[in-house]
Each structure stands twice: as structure tokens, then as C-alpha cells.
Design a protein around this nucleic acid. Structure first.
Length: 604
RNA sequence: CGGGGCGUAGCGCAGUCUGGUAGCGCGGUAGCUUUGGGAGCUAUAGGUCGGGGGUUCAAAUCCCUCCGCCCCGACCA
């Protein structure tokens, strides 16, 4: 894979084609380009700094890739930067291949443009806001929809100029509520963001698919196993979206996937298939009020009746855009407020406070129930359809109702999917079992529609001279997050296991003893030969004990390690070890080049 | 912002409860020995104990206050 994207072509004269000739001064340049550990800055750490929690964060610090300036702000050291640039290179190559056009937009934006779409308020909490010397208000860009759309509004006027897809690889700034896990969630991070503009929704789908396909290639080339899930569009707006998730226990996002079909979704969006009605006893038992002193929470009431929370009907009071709404759920389920807000069409949604609950239900918080409520919108989770024999609040202090039957006691209720899917639920597509996983969101593709193009005037003229807003898509990859996700997914107890595509260097030559002249000479010779065929090498030439250098080699995790030492040299061989497989082989120095080249090409 | 924890040498930590001249390991520097999986010995440098205020004869230790960092929850690439 590595070789495939970085051709090692020679021209007819047999000279290396990458701008290096056989003139003597060129050899000098090559020698200078040989990277010696002793002259690099690779500050490895034996122990893990105490403020790093997850493996990838610890390893980035320990392997000397990054250092922290402050919470959510990191410096990339040489090895970290090289790996970062490699991720960027993969992204750039695939974006270019997909026909996207690279541009670079400012990180500083005038406030005005954010006001024009109303997102100054929507994203107010995450934006860093500053003023210049004239007291003009500026923000540090958390994303760039407004900026590209403004560009397109100015530059594109005809259907003949479409489709277009602009992308950039640039630093974003977000005042994160809680920066976390090193580069995973930082206040300043590098993102590849792309924006497509099309003449119609149908063609926009083609652009969307092209990005989706490019993302599959990008993450695969980065050596990542990703899970693609259906996602909510959130503050971005728009119709549909997919997230590219790296499965990891430390992931901040919950997802569910079906064990049988291809269904997978972010928990925010995941649906649940039909489940059998919740029937707990005979339907003919009549509703009964029971004293339940001091039992308010679901757990307390369930304990009081010696049953499980599943038999409860949870009654929650919300205020949606100033209107009260009563929400019913199975007692062992949590509301998914994103789903709820969507169903209600509400832009603001808050739990009612105790006073509001008292006013609406006539009872203190903890005893709310659906029976007898008047003048309030009632909405129930779909899983409650046909529910009977349940227990719920009686809207009176210290009282609950038993033998509750939703249809009988409340009548026709609005039903909707309002709860979070969870482990063991049936798949909405095929009915088989859903499993819950954790994931790191490394990429996100959205179909945006015309929200931004309308507000910012990104209009084009069609064949008949009629004006239309361009149909947009937007596509993000967290580049710095992807880098860390690679480490999170590819490490062992000794250190990082880089894919060759991203590794700071594909090969390390470890000189067992820096004082053994023949070893040093051979190591340098091999390095020069490898560089001549386009494989860059890091030589560990430090005058350290071998064990020390082996540990560092495993920590840094370059894909191929060549060890040159007196003992093996006495037998006429050097050792070649693959970091990924741990497989070690011995070869005569003349044979090493070929072996290493093959290993590097494999080591994705 | 709510809840929990931490801040002592470059890194990892002890010392704080019970106030009395600031320690350990790793790392750094110099030397000798050692050299195939984070070496040994010797010498040596390095700390306003996060900042400020207070109590006290005396504060890393007790009190007040501010700051920073980490973890759990609400947001996102």
C-alpha cells in the first residue's frame, strides 16, 4: 500500500527520479538527510505522565510525539508532526482523487457572517470570541460552512460551474466544555473539512457518495477499522448523515450495531425494532391507588412493590418551547431528548422544575402519572403500546397506581420512538439483536440541503435562467483525532504499532552498540541504500545499552526494525523484525533491502 | 457548570491526618565499570512545596482565597 501511493520510479538513465542525481554533492545531501536518533528530539518516557488516562494519550506522550501546553492544547514534536503530516497526506491524496479542490480559508472570521445564518447564537458556547484594536468582533472558526458558502456565493453563478467540492486542512478552534484525552477532544485541532455544491438534491447524493467512498479509503489506508453509523445532524442541520467510528472502549460515542444485518447507528439516532407489548398482569384488573410512603424514584417504587423498574411507567414533564409536555416511558428506559425534540419540533427543550411539575400534575415531583392529566400534551414511547398491568404515579403525594393499562386508562395517546436503544434490543431493520459499542468519531458526512446557500445567497442560474440555491453537503475528518485513534486501535503493552502509511518513518535501524564501528558503518550503508529506493530510515545511533534502545523502538513503534550488532554480524547476518507481527528474521546484509521493502509495503 | 480527585526537582511519587532545617526512585551532569530487552558504583547539580493572604515562636503540613490540571456527566471532528 505504501509503495502504491508513493511510486519509487526510476527514469531511463537509472537515476533516482525524485530530484536526486548521482552527482557527489547529491550524495552529501542524502547523508545529511539520514536521520540519527542522537540528533533528533524524541523524548521518550519510561513512565506515563499522570494526567494521561487512555492508552493512546499515554503513548503519544511516552513516545515523544506530543507535549502539553495547557488543557486541550498540544505541541507536536518531530515524530508526532511527521505522523500527522502523513495522515494529512493520505487525506489530501484521497480528496484530490475524489475531485475535491483544496483551498485554505481564514481561521479568524468577522462576527457578521455568523450572524447571517443565525449560528452566532447556536454555536455561541463553543466559539472563541475576540476583538481587534478597532473593537470589531471576530471569532476563531469552529467550522467553515458560512465561509465557503460566502465564497461560492461570490464566485459561482452558473450551473455550468457546478458541481464543486472545496476542502481545506486547517486548524479549528472550539471552546470545548471539557477537553479530554489529549488530542481526542482539544480546544485547537486540525480538521479536514470539505463542502460540496450541486444543482440538485439528486446530484448532491452523488457528491455525498463520492465523499463516503473517499472516507472508506482514507481510514483503511490509515490502518483503521471503522464502523459507519447513521447519525444525527445536530447543530449542523440537514437531512442525513453518517459517522465514521473507530471502535474503542475509550470512545466517547455510544453506537449500536445489528449482529445480523448492516444496521448501525449512533445512540442519538438509533431506533429499536418492534417489541412485544409490556403486559404484566391480566387486563381485567382495575386501576387501584396504593399508598407508597417515601417512594419517589423508579428504583424506590419498584423496591416497594418488589418488582423491576421495567414494570413502571416513567412520567416526565418537559417544557418544549414554553409549552408543557408529559412524556411516558418504560421505567427502565431513558429519554432520548434528541428524538423527543425532533418529534415535538421543539428548538428548546428542558425538564420542568419542581414548581412546574406541581402545577401540571398537581403533585410533587416523584408521583407524576398520566391518568387524569388535562390540558397538556401527552406523548408516550412506542414501547408502551398495549402496555397493561404497569405501575405509575397517581398525581398525589405518596400514592401510585397499579394495574395501569395505557389504552384503557388514558385512551388514545400519541406514540413515538422516544427512548435510547440499548444492548439486546431488536434491530429496526431485521429484528435481530442489537449490540452496544463505544466509538471514536473520526469522520462525519452530512447532506446539508440549501440551508446555508439560501441564507448566504449561494445561488446559481439554471439553463433557463432561473435562480436556485446550490444544494450542499459537508464532510469532516478530525485529522489530529484520527492520528490518536490510530494509536488507540493499534498498540500493545510495549507501545505503538504504526501502519507504514502513517508511521513517522517506515524503518528504524537499531545499532546495538554505537561503539562497534562495523555495525555503525553497515547501518549507515543500509540507510543510504534504503533512502535511495524511497524508504526513509531513522537510525538509533545512541550510545545506550541495547535493552534501552529495544524498549524505545517498541514504544515508538516504527513498522520495521533492523538490528545491526556484533554478534549477528559475526554470523554474517542482520535481524529484521516486524513491529506488527513480532516476527523476526535474519538476512545477509545484501538481502535486507528487498526483505525490508516487502515488509514496508505489507505493513499497512 | 455540577460532582469527585490532584498540585512537593524534568518525570513518577512519599511526607500533610498529628506544624519543628524537604525526601525516595527514574532522569540530568562528570568519572570508572558494563554492553542483545529500560545496567552498577562514585561524585554532583536541581525545589519561592501552584499563587496570594492569614494563624503561629515556627507552615509543604492548619484556615481563607485565587489559579491550574485530571476523571465522571450535558456538547462535537
Amino acid at each position: 500500500m505504501f509503495g502504491a501511493h508513493k511510486p519509487l520510479a526510476y527514469d531511463d538513465s537509472g537515476h533516482h527520479s525524485r530530484g536526486v542525481s548521482n552527482r557527489p554533492e547529491a550524495n552529501v545531501l542524502r547523508r545529511v538527510s539520514m536521520i540519527r536518533w542522537s540528533q533528533q528530539c524524541i523524548p521518550t518516557l519510561k513512565e506515563s505522565p499522570q494526567d494521561a488516562e487512555i492508552p493512546s494519550h499515554q503513548l503519544m506522550l511516552r513516545a515523544g510525539l506530543i507535549r502539553k501546553l495547557a488543557g486541550g492544547l498540544y505541541t507536536f514534536l518531530p515524530m508526532g508532526l511527521r505522523a500527522l503530516r502523513n495522515v494529512e497526506r493520505v487525506v489530501r491524496e484521497e480528496m484530490d482523487r475524489a475531485g475535491a479542490l483544496e483551498i485554505l480559508m481564514p481561521a479568524l472570521h468577522p462576527r457578521d457572517i455568523w450572524d447571517r445564518t443565525g449560528r452566532y447564537d447556536v454555536l455561541s458556547d463553543v466559539m472563541f470570541k475576540i476583538k481587534d484594536r478597532q473593537q470589531r468582533e471576530l471569532v476563531l472558526g469552529p467550522t467553515h460552512e458560512e465561509i465557503v458558502t460566502d465564497l461560492v456565493a461570490r464566485e459561482i453563478s452558473s450551473y455550468r460551474q457546478l458541481p464543486k467540492n472545496f476542502y481545506q486542512i486547517q486548524t479549528k478552534f472550539r471552546d470545548e466544555i471539557r477537553p479530554r484525552f489529549g488530542l481526542m477532544r482539544a480546544k485547537e485541532f486540525i480538521m479536514k473539512d470539505a463542502y460540496s455544491f450541486d444543482v440538485s438534491s439528486e446530484v448532491a447524493d452523488v457528491s455525498y457518495q463520492a465523499m463516503y467512498d473517499a472516507y472508506v479509503r482514507i481510514f483503511s489506508r490509515c490502518g483503521l477499522r471503522t464502523k459507519i453509523v447513521e447519525a444525527d445532524t445536530g447543530a449542523m442541520g440537514g437531512q442525513s448523515s453518517h459517522e465514521f467510528m473507530v471502535l474503542a472502549d475509550s470512545g466517547e460515542d455510544g453506537i449500536v450495531e445489528c449482529e445480523s444485518c448492516s444496521y448501525a447507528a449512533n445512540l442519538e439516532r438509533a431506533e429499536t425494532g418492534d417489541m412485544p407489548p409490556l403486559v404484566f398482569d391480566d387486563a381485567d384488573k382495575t386501576l387501584e391507588v396504593v399508598d407508597t410512603p417515601n417512594a419517589r424514584t423508579i428504583a424506590e417504587v419498584a423496591a416497594f412493590f418488589d418488582t423491576t423498574p421495567a414494570q413502571m411507567v416513567k412520567t416526565l414533564v418537559y417544557i418544549a418551547d414554553d409549552q408543557p409536555v408529559v412524556v411516558l416511558l418504560p421505567g427502565d428506559r431513558d429519554v432520548n431528548e434528541i428524538k423527543l425534540a425532533r418529534v415535538l419540533g421543539a428548538s428548546e427543550l428542558n425538564m420542568a422544575d419542581d414548581a412546574q411539575v406541581g402545577k401540571i400534575t398537581g403533585a410533587p415531583t416523584g408521583f407524576a402519572g398520566p391518568v387524569g392529566l388535562k390540558n397538556v400534551r401527552l406523548i408516550a414511547d412506542r414501547k408502551l403500546a398495549g402496555c397493561c398491568g404497569a405501575i405509575t404515579g397517581a398525581n398525589e403525594v405518596d400514592k401510585h397506581l397499579i394495574h395501569f393499562d395505557l389504552a384503557r386508562d388514558v385512551g388514545d395517546v400519541e406514540l413515538a420512538d422516544l427512548s435510547f436503544a440499548r444492548e439486546g434490543d431488536p434491530c429496526p431493520r431485521c429484528g435481530e439483536t442489537l449490540h452496544e459499542k463505544r466509538g471514536i468519531e473520526v469522520g462525519h458526512v452530512f447532506k446539508l440541503g440549501t440551508k446555508y446557500s439560501e441564507k448566504l445567497g449561494a445561488l446559481y442560474l439554471d439553463e433557463s435562467g432561473k435562480q436556485h440555491p446550490a444544494v450542499m453537503g459537508c464532510y469532516g475528518i478530525g485529522v489530529t483525532r484520527t492520528l490518536q485513534a490510530i494509536i488507540e486501535q493499534r498498540h500493545d503493552e510495549h507501545g505503538i504499532i504504526w501502519p507504514a502509511s502513517v508511521a513517522p518513518y517506515p524503518v528504524e535501524i537499531l545499532v546495538i552498540s554505537a561503539k562497534h564501528e562495523p555495525s555503525v558503518a553497515l547501518a549507515e550503508k543500509l540507510a543510504i541504500e534504503l533512502e535511495a529506493i524511497g524508504i526513509q530510515v531513522l537510525i538509533d545511533d545512541r550510545d545506550e545499552r541495547p535493552g534501552f534502545k529495544f524498549k524505545d523502538a517498541d514504544l515508538l513503534g516504527l513498522p520495521v526494525r533492523i538490528s545491526v550488532g556484533e554478534k549477528s554480524l559475526a554470523r554474517g547476518v542482520v535481524e529484521v523484525k516486524s513491529r506488527a507481527t513480532g516476527e523476526m528474521t535474519e538476512h545477509a546484509p545484501e538481502a535486507v533491502l528487498e526483505v525490508v521493502q516487502a515488509l514496508v509495503e505489507e505493513a499497512v
